[in-house]
């Protein structure tokens, strides 16, 4: 993700609202790779056979960017969080759609099956849910810090830009604090 200032993102968003296709392409280029990586981890293999992850991500992003009327741009971090939520919802939709094809009754929480995303296979569904639940309990600044750094893998410089922090070191401290809180909230 290139490190542009929040102002330029805001400008792009305005342009997108005005229907500027080039601006849309630019933002897509910026957000798609990271979100795709992120999404891959959360989509079970089965689902991905049905719809290519990249297409899914692209659709989601475009969808979000086109309907920004209710979105208050507080900063890049907020935009990441918004995109992520949209992505998560979209993934859940896909999963439901997939399961409706015939395996609804067998969706057992503890059953590791082909319906598990790579992430779930690795750390278990229960852990993923604890994580999501804990993440939801953080305040928005903390959540954005986690999403930006831990999930999207942005550099601290980029995180600083996203969160509106003055230096990467400040961003790092914010991430550390959020992480510590997150870990506590995740305790079973």
């Amino acid at each position: 993700m290139s490190s542009d200032s929040p102002e330029s993102t805001l400008v792009l968003l305005e342009q997108i609202r005005a229907g500027d296709q080039a601006a849309l392409d630019l933002l897509l280029t910026r957000y798609r790779p990271q979100l795709t990586r992120w999404a891959r981890g959360r989509l079970p293999h089965g689902v991905r056979d049905l719809s290519d992850t990249e297409d899914l991500v692209q659709e989601t992003i475009i969808g979000v960017l086109r309907h920004l009327d209710h979105f208050e741009f507080r900063g890049e971090g907020a935009l990441h969080a918004y995109l992520r939520r949209a992505m998560l919802n979209r993934i859940r939709d896909e999963l439901r759609r997939h399961s409706r094809r015939g395996a609804a009754e067998t969706l057992d929480e503890r059953f590791v099956c082909a319906d598990d995303s790579p992430l779930e296979q690795v750390i278990g569904r229960e852990a993923v849910e604890r994580y999501e639940s804990a993440l939801a309990q953080l305040n928005s600044a903390e959540r954005e810090a986690i999403i930006a750094r831990i999930e999207l893998g942005q550099t601290f410089a980029e995180v600083a830009g996203a969160l509106g922090k003055p230096t990467p070191e400040a961003a790092r401290m914010a991430v550390n604090r959020a992480l510590a809180r997150l870990a506590r909230l995740m305790l079973p």
């Binding site: 981890g41 790579p118 994580y131 995740m186």
Partner: peptide
Amino acid sequence: QLRLIATLSEVSRTDEGTHTAEAG
């Protein structure tokens, strides 16, 4: 918990491979 988060982080950020793993 931190280890889980670290793992989650790796999975979320890795470019390659998630789709090459065998199911399960």
